[in-house]
Design a protein around this nucleic acid. Structure first.
Length: 202
DNA sequence: CAGTGGATCGTCT
DNA sequence: GACGATCCACTGG
């Protein structure tokens, strides 16, 4: 049985806990009637105004980051390196700019469509691996920023449960500029899953 | 494998 | 005007 995660799931105060709990859930898009989905295998928490790695550090509030200040349960999508569309889940209440970056999914539904989007012929471990590829596989782009996670983009619990020991915490990736905050264990991933980015996912 | 460098553009200084 | 919550091709071992 599939249950769509409701707004109250995302409105909770602890973004690190939400990031951990999103491991194993299903991220699904239905765009122009085309359904693609994957199981979330890697996430990172961004802890708002006190987190040097966050776009909202020190309460920075710009046109781009405005959607992070929404109540939890909407998408924050932004362009990175001019090429990659990175998909985040906004959490916490309005005006508290917390977010969870989805860094890896294991394809579930609509594999053919995902392969088209990835320009690949065969399913392999690179499909849905890394935040840029998550968005690419699912058809998510910056035009979806601010969208509700109850509509075209949604997240589901299908009853799948991981052993706690199969969820690993580690420092986040690609945020060396964040000083001491770069060492915080805000990244979570499914142990051993091939769709987890980086090396050494055992 | 590991290491390196180019792509590419919106955003903020 | 510099740079990024990245990815991939290409190199050399």
């Amino acid at each position: 049985m599939m249950t769509k995660l409701p707004p109250v799931f995302f409105e909770r105060p602890d973004v690190v806990q939400v990031a951990r709990e999103l491991i194993g859930k299903i991220l699904l898009t239905r765009l122009d009637g085309i359904v693609t989905s994957g199981r979330i295998v890697e996430t990172e928490a961004y802890n708002g105004v006190v987190d040097r790695a966050s776009h909202a550090y020190k309460g920075r509030r710009t046109a781009r980051t405005e959607t992070m200040y929404s109540a939890g349960g909407v998408a924050y999508v932004y362009l990175c390196y001019g090429i990659h569309h990175l998909f985040n889940v906004v959490t916490n209440i309005k005006d508290v700019p917390h977010a969870v970056l989805i860094r890896g999914i294991e394809p579930v539904e609509g594999v053919e469509q995902m392969l088209d989007r990835m320009r690949k012929l065969k399913l392999d471990h690179t499909v849905g691996r890394g935040p840029g590829n998550v968005s690419r596989a699912l058809g998510i782009s910056t035009e979806h920023t601010g969208n509700s996670l109850q509509e075209e983009i949604s997240i589901w619990d299908d009853g799948f449960v991981l052993k706690p020991s199969d969820i690993i915490a580690s420092p986040r990736i690609g945020i060396d500029y964040a000083g001491e905050d770069a060492t915080l264990p805000y990244r979570f991933y499914q142990k051993g899953n091939r769709h987890v980015s980086g090396k050494g996912n055992k």
